[in-house]
Simulated scan of single mutants.
Amino acid sequence: MRTGFPNAKPGMVIGLLGGSFDPAHEGHVHITHEALKRIGLDRVWWLVSPGNPLKARQPAPMPARIAQARRMLKDDPRVVVSDIEARLGTRFTADTIARLQELYPGVSFVWLMGADNLAQFHKWDRWREIMERVPVGVLARPGSGLKARLSVAAQVYRGNRVARGENLAHRNGPAWVFVNVPMSAASSSEIRAKGQWKP
């Protein structure tokens, strides 16, 4: 594997949690640990994005966001914080997943997202391609459960919903699960609004 890219062996199941992580907070850590436990993942990679195409405001510098993410994880060996999208030069999730599948033959990937993202997933570039390429684990977020369950993506793929998280990891897309987890109300936008994030 190329320098700066995470290690993974064929047969492993890797959860991918993408986002600006501006800043990373205990909510990210919480859903990561829940995904590891409930979906049967070997590792989770945090894909710290260069920027979010759906947001006008651009995030803090990448080194500051990566450093904060690593502090939040406290050296958990099961979680890798990566700037892989910047290294790959990919801007959209569908492209990132396609490149990872090329680079890591034999590795199974699961896309992870909070329920708040599922509610607006149909606005993502080539969202159907993402659903077709990899299984998707959706983790409950405060105030987003009903919106997520009634979302365009949930309706289009209602026949592909899996009842339990542990049944997801070795499936091909399209397959998704909604995982009810104890919730954290932490929010990057609230942390920034309160002036608690000084990159």
Rank of each mutant, 00 (worst) to 15 (best):
A169P: 08
G165N: 04
A140R: 12
P182K: 01
G159V: 00
N160M: 03
V177S: 10
G143A: 07
V136S: 05
V110Y: 08
E129M: 01
E132A: 14
E166K: 14
P174R: 09
G173R: 11
A153W: 06
S108L: 10
F121L: 05
E129L: 03
V179S: 10
V152H: 11
A169K: 14
N167W: 14
L112H: 10
V177H: 13
V138T: 11
M183K: 09
W127D: 02
V156L: 08
K123S: 00
G143V: 10
V107G: 01
E102W: 06
Q101W: 06
I97C: 10
L103W: 03
V136E: 01
I130V: 15
R133F: 06
L118P: 03
N180L: 12
G159A: 15
Y157P: 00
N160P: 00
P135C: 13
V138Y: 03
L118A: 12
L168D: 13
A153G: 10
G106W: 00
W176S: 12
A115P: 03
K147L: 11
S108F: 05
I97P: 08
W111G: 04
V110A: 09
V136C: 02
V181T: 14
P182C: 01
Q101D: 09
V138A: 07
R141K: 04
V107N: 04
I97A: 08
R141W: 06
R141V: 04
V136I: 15
S144R: 05
E132N: 11
V136W: 05
L100P: 08
L168N: 10
L112G: 02
S151W: 04
E166S: 13
